[in-house]
């Protein structure tokens, strides 16, 4: 280090004083701008929307928010329609996170040991998750097109009248419920399996070799090695991947908006999409939407807590 050459000369006392003062000042100077911005743009709106959740208010009506207590919350919880959207979101989360976990895990096991070109292939697989979800939605809308889309063509359905129309939930003209939802799940899996792969891979790489060597000396089968060494060792990271993806599934918005806009009918109306519809379209039910947003937030927090508790338990055991 050429530090000594141009360092300013100071008496030791002055130096100590200056460093002590600047340390404190620097901490404040360095941290507060960030915190103030976060408080202004995140924390304050969070409390404001909690308040709005207890009011009857529409952002486009010329009226002040009227306090209505828990009415919005009870309305939402008594609304059959809303339960249906929650169920759709749950189905979507379960299917997409489940498939992503399986596929991501399998992929990670496959690319775990290097082969020629494995680095390049792994990077190529990672591309989808970096693309804007709304653009991905549009991509796949074109792919799924029943007459000129590549999806049907590559699956061998060359005649549109006998093939599936994924986004309209039809197969050869007949209605197949939930086909559109599966179409969205498929795209989500396409986009985010690499994410699970990436996390699991980093977990796999951290497993010390001596565990396997010891198992090999004991002539443990590879099946046994997988269940007793590999799986428990990567479980924490796998769980984090699942946690991240579950949270994202409840926030899922861009992809669905790009692809189906909630349709056909309300088959792909996920809770986040409905939230947007209530808040910014039609009647602009700001109060009710805020209450709904809080319900979603509470669900997300509850789910994360469950996962984190399980994660801590697992860490405590091993």
């Amino acid at each position: 280090m050429s530090v000594q050459a141009n360092a300013p000369r100071l008496s030791s006392q002055e130096r100590a004083r200056r460093r002590y003062l600047t340390d404190r000042a620097i901490v404040n100077l360095f941290i507060w701008p960030t915190l103030i911005l976060l408080i202004a743009i995140n924390l304050f709106p969070l409390f404001y929307s909690l308040y709005l959740g207890f009011t009857d208010y529409s952002a486009i009506a010329r009226q002040v928010p009227v306090w209505v207590g828990f009415k919005n919350f009870s309305d939402i919880l008594n609304d059959q329609q809303m339960w249906k959207y929650f169920a759709t979101t749950g189905k979507y989360a379960l299917a997409s996170v489940g498939l992503q976990t399986l596929l991501g895990f399998a992929l990670a096991m496959l690319v775990r040991e290097k082969f020629r070109g494995s680095g390049l292939l792994t990077t190529l697989i990672l591309i989808p998750m970096m693309i804007s979800p709304v653009v991905v939605g549009l991509f796949w809308k074109l792919m799924y097109n029943p007459t000129f889309g590549f999806f049907n063509y590559l699956l061998g359905f060359t005649n549109p009248s006998t093939g599936p129309d994924m986004l309209a939930s039809r197969f050869a003209g007949k209605v197949v419920p939930n086909l559109a939802l599966w179409a969205v799940v498929l795209v989500d899996v396409w986009m985010w399996s690499p994410f699970v792969m990436l996390l699991v891979l980093s977990g796999l790489k951290a497993i010390p070799d001596y565990l396997y060597e010891a198992a090999a000396i004991d002539r443990a089968s590879s099946w046994f090695q997988f269940w007793r060494i590999t799986l428990p060792q990567v479980a924490p990271l796998l769980l984090i991947a699942v946690l991240f993806r579950t949270i994202e599934a409840f926030k899922a918005f861009d992809l669905v908006m790009g692809m189906t806009g909630g349709g056909p009918g309300d088959q792909t109306e996920l809770i986040a999409v409905n939230l947007y519809r209530q808040a910014f379209l039609g009647q602009w039910r700001t109060g009710r939407a805020s209450a709904l947003a809080y319900i979603v937030l509470i669900i997300i927090i509850a789910v994360s807590n469950l996962y984190i508790r399980y994660l801590n338990k697992m860490r405590g055991e091993s």
Binding site: N42, A59, A279, T286, S290
Partner: peptide, 15 residues
């Protein structure tokens, strides 16, 4: 980062 965007967007919109 974990908040659903809509939770903060409604009040932000008003703000």
């Amino acid at each position: 980062r974990m908040l659903p965007p809509v939770v903060v967007t409604i009040p932000l919109f008003l703000m």
